[in-house]
Design a protein around this nucleic acid. Structure first.
Length: 780
DNA sequence: CAGTGAGCGAGCTTCCGCTTGACTT
């Protein structure tokens, strides 16, 4: 029977700490918060100073009863939750719920999990800091008020089941505004001039030198005039400039930077990164993965140092202390790093290996010397011109941290790889091989990826390491935002070429603007965003969170009372909610595009019951309006009249087959042919406007052939049990559920009785829902 | 799997931050 009970937040942490503390201590975990505001209603007593109404979270009931049991046998309870606002509140909720007595309850904190740190913490216990707890209560109550008062406004004014909140609504705003910047973007053309010169080195060997004009010309005429002067000009080296530059390694990973780098270097989604990191953490290979700290423990720094010395030598070592720059960081943990720096690789899945490799390299590199480079600029005079060409080269003198790791950037543009330049002398004359003036266009801002959105949110202090991934899932589940691709479009550009005193002009084409796995706002996302900005500009302000955080800090310092702070907010906020419910119109995002040339009726787009639609005519007219759904890639905001008119070319009748007519239309899952109340998908490569009757019959026959092979057997009075051939092999279909057939059994010989046995044996496992890495219930 | 586009109006939806667990094709 142990005399001491230590409660931490995570079971993996509990396991580690138990090893350090010995038999006198039992270590258990609370699994995060054990209580929360009641689920029904707001859970706040507005007539009683905003008193929160808490209840034990359903999934924590078991844990709480286990903890209660453990408390009974302990002399002293040590509350060792994290050293931040949320951690303090967890300790307080535990003390309340477990009825802990002040005299035998101690609050301890440590932000690195080493034996020394924990022993030191045990020697320096304190009491629960109620000011800090109250700051958390204010945070919690504010989020509940915002979320649970705004969401119902959306249900009434836009669509049921929608949601709004301090964090998610601002995240959506970022994406909506970026999309509009892109829509309004007008690319500007300019002419970039590059040249290839030739010369001979000291041995008479021919060498090439690539150079560029630092200035760009804004018109074709100017570029043309410049090339004309180059035609007969003399080129000579004016000046050679050499200067050393240094590059420093990036700090160790936080949750946000890990998500960004895993996205850029490994192509992981934000939630994928977190799931893989969680497994590495649980198996003891890395430290905690939800952190905003870039700090490394002294133990970690020392072992990293030893690794670097071993691997590369003393001169590669440089001990660094990084400090956090991000807003609102609470730094309750270390940075994300390998638990054991000497483990260069780990066992596990391919994903685990790759993510670990990234973490190991980043951590090691952060304690390595700067890289030293030498940058060379060669300036080249052009006789009869004020301009100069510049050739740049970069040479690594000492690789330093680059030996193991280089951080990636989001915008990997056409930066010319500049390596070593040939050695040149001042005054040396050069002749050009070729000079090109190419029309270049300014780049529109990039759409957000999941990871770059996280970076932006962190920058604004919105959200926490534990919520980045769930928030990004939420805004996608609510259908405010979609992850998608856009193909590149062809764009033509002018090119002037000067070669052998001959100046020629050509029109070339390039592919541009391809996007993969980027975040696009949906129509509903835009409508909700505009509505919220119109009525609740304060909540939607990018600085709202930062401002309330300042207020929470004051509560934590005991300078103001949390209930007063909430009261000030609520007295301002609630009347706006009431007013909006009363006075605002229902939002459908309607846009009138013009008139239909055939009927002369109005053509408009709006959000309908089942998504965005185009509509010919209005409901006030006697003749009913005609509707057509928008395509997946189209949006209410950007669709043109011409594009909308195209939509009404479907459904179209294309002829008869077996005395039944065939219609082509586009449904939820793409274009299809309908015949005899059956559906036949049209392959992606074919245009539904071009499908002929002959081709449609072919598609129907093909599908029938597949279906013939699909059905193995049917049983039951109306054939309600079917044995079918599916993508993963044979299976049984019964009452809309599928049942797998054990591998040993030959599906073709199954009897009805055997089928019923299989169905009965799997009845309890079939039909249950899958859970992903997102909060709560998923909508289907 | 898919087609719709209206309002007799039941009863439901929803927030942010801490944590992990047990679902299978």
């Amino acid at each position: 029977m142990s005399k001491n009970l230590v409660i931490v937040e995570s079971p993996a942490k509990a396991k580690t700490i138990e090893k350090f503390l010995g038999k006198e201590f039992e270590v258990k975990s609370s699994m995060g918060h054990i209580r929360d505001l009641v689920d029904k209603g707001l859970g706040i007593d507005f007539d009683n100073n905003y008193q929160p109404h808490y209840e034990i979270s359903p999934d924590k009931k078991k844990i709480v009863s286990e903890l209660k049991k453990a408390v009974k046998t302990a002399d002293t309870v040590w509350l060792a939750s994290d050293e931040d606002r949320e951690g303090e509140a967890i300790a307080w909720h535990l003390a309340e719920e477990l009825n802990l007595k002040k005299q035998n309850t101690k609050r301890i904190v440590f932000n690195e999990i080493t034996k020394d740190a924990i022993i030191k913490a045990i020697k320096n216990p304190r009491e629960i800091n109620l000011d800090l707890v109250n700051a958390q209560q204010a945070r919690r109550v504010l989020d509940r008020i915002v979320g649970f008062e705004l969401s119902p406004v959306l249900w009434r004014k836009v669509r049921p089941s929608l949601s709004a909140g301090r964090v998610q609504s601002v995240a959506v705003r970022l994406i909506v505004e970026r999309e509009r910047e892109i829509n309004n973007f007008k690319p500007e053309a300019s002419y970039r001039v590059t040249a290839v010169f030739s010369s001979k080195d000291s041995n008479g060997k021919p060498i090439e030198l690539k150079a560029e004009l630092p200035q760009r010309f804004s018109t074709l005429e100017e570029a043309h005039a410049f090339l004309e002067t180059c035609k007969s000009a003399q080129f000579s080296v004016d000046n050679i400039e050499q200067r050393p530059i240094k590059k420093s390694p990036a700090p160790p990973f936080t949750t946000s930077t890990l998500q960004q780098e895993a996205s850029r270097k490994l192509g992981f989604s934000v939630s994928q990164t977190m799931m893989v990191a969680q497994r590495l953490y649980e198996s003891g290979k890395i430290t905690y993965m939800r952190t905003d700290s870039v700090n490394l423990s002294s133990l970690a720094i020392n072992t990293a140092k030893a690794e670097i010395q071993n691997m590369a030598g003393e001169k590669y070592v440089k001990i660094r202390k990084f400090s956090t720059k991000s807003k609102g960081a609470q730094e309750a943990h270390e940075a994300i790093r390998p638990t054991y720096m000497n483990a260069h690789t780990v066992e596990g899945t391919a994903q685990e290996k790759r993510l670990y490799d990234l973490i190991w390299k980043r951590t090691i590199a952060s304690q390595m010397a700067d890289a030293e480079l030498e940058k060379t600029n060669i300036y080249i005079n052009i006789s009869g011109s004020k301009y100069q060409f510049v050739a740049t080269g970069e040479v690594i003198i000492f690789d330093g941290f680059l030996k193991v790791y280089l951080e990636s950037t989001d915008d990997e543009q056409d930066t010319e790889a500049s390596g070593i330049l040939p050695s040149m002398k001042k005054g040396e004359s050069l002749t050009y091989n070729e000079i090109l003036a190419q029309e270049r266009f300014s780049q529109r801002p990039p759409r957000y990826t999941e990871a770059s959105l996280v970076r932006k949110m962190e920058e604004l202090g919105i959200g926490r390491p534990s919520t980045y991934a769930p928030t990004i899932s939420t805004i996608q589940n609510r259908n405010y935002v979609e992850k998608g691709d856009r193909p590149a479009v062809k764009r033509s550009y002018n090119e002037l070429k000067l070669k052998g005193e001959k100046l020629s002009k050509a029109i070339k084409s390039e592919n541009t603007g391809a996007e993969k796995s980027k975040l696009f706002p949906t129509d509903i996302g835009m409508v909700v965003n505009d509505f919220l900005i119109e009525h609740f500009p304060d909540i939607m302000d990018y600085n709202f969170t930062a401002n309330v955080e300042l207020e929470f800090d004051q509560i934590a310092e005991g300078k103001i009372k949390w209930n007063n702070s909430i009261d000030r907010f609520y007295k301002n906020f609630h009347p706006i909610v009431e007013d909006t419910l009363k006075h605002s119109e229902r939002q459908v995002g309607e846009r009138i595009l013009g008139t239909d040339p055939k009927t002369g009726r109005q053509l408009s787009v709006k959000i309908g019951r089942y998504g965005p639609i185009a509509q010919i005519g209005t409901s006030e007219e006697e003749e009913k309006p005609i509707f057509a759904s928008l395509r997946k890639t189209q949006s209410i905001e950007s669709i043109t009249l011409e594009e909308a008119l195209e939509l009404f070319k479907l459904p179209r009748e294309i002829g008869d087959f077996e005395e039944k007519n065939m219609t082509v239309a586009v449904g939820r899952f793409g274009p299809y042919i309908r015949h005899d109340s059956k559906f036949y998908s049209i392959p992606k490569s074919e245009d539904p406007l071009e499908i002929t009757a002959e081709r449609a019959i072919e598609i129907i026959e093909e599908k029938r052939e597949v279906d013939r092979n699909k059905l193995i057997n049917t049983f039951g009075e109306n054939g309600e049990i079917q044995v079918l051939n599916g993508r993963y092999g044979p299976y049984i279909a019964f009452e809309k559920n599928n049942y797998k057939i054990p591998k040993k059994i030959d599906a073709t010989t199954l009897t009805e009785e055997q089928c019923r046995e299989i169905i009965a044996s799997q009845a309890d496992t079939v039909g249950k829902k899958k859970k992903g890495y997102s909060r709560g219930k998923k909508k289907s």
